[in-house]
């Protein structure tokens, strides 16, 4: 099936198998490897992307379902070519280790900040309910992000 998906402001068109997942489209067709695959069952959250501004696990969606949608992946996140507030907070401390999950945390954290204007402990714990990190034990992530505000 022919699909066109806008990823980070750029249209990617391809003739794909109906069973192709969105994450495979992002990684294999668009060649954007910052979106990681950790489980393919929607539990780990490493493949999180934003579709029309809302977080979605791209392993649980088919590429054909995303036809015509606007998607933001980790490669499309940032501010004026630099890291955004969430990226700054996560990189300036021990909030990441192996970081295979971190791109998913950045994507979801960016959405949570957009929604709430400020990241409180409750907002953080609620937002990351679908993101697994096996290295940090989470508290370093929570502490790094707590109090982060949107500053335009």
């Amino acid at each position: 099936m022919k699909v066109t998906i806008n990823i980070n402001g750029k249209d990617y068109s391809a003739d794909v198998e109906p069973r192709m997942t969105l994450v495979d489209f992002i990684r294999d067709v668009a060649g954007l490897k910052g979106t990681h695959v950790g489980c393919e069952t929607g539990h780990c959250g490493a493949c999180s992307v934003l579709i029309d501004g809302r977080p979605v696990k791209s392993c649980l969606m088919l590429a054909v379902q995303a036809n015509g949608k606007r998607i933001t992946t980790i490669e499309g996140i940032g501010k004026d070519g630099g890291p955004n507030e969430v990226q700054m907070a996560l990189s300036s401390s021990k909030a990441l280790q192996c970081a295979f999950c971190s791109t998913g945390f950045v994507v979801v954290g960016t959405w949570a900040l957009e929604e709430n204007g400020e990241l409180t402990e409750d907002v953080i714990k609620e937002s990351f309910i679908g993101n697994v990190c096996r290295c940090t034990g989470y508290e370093p992530i929570i502490k790094a992000l707590r109090g982060v505000r949107k500053n335009d």
């Binding site: 990681h36 490669e75 990189s91």
Partner: peptide
Amino acid sequence: RSIPRLDSEQKVRGELKYLTDVY
């Protein structure tokens, strides 16, 4: 001293290529 990891910026930007990311 608690300096940030040398690879942390690459990591939060999704620029670090893991070995399963290379095709």
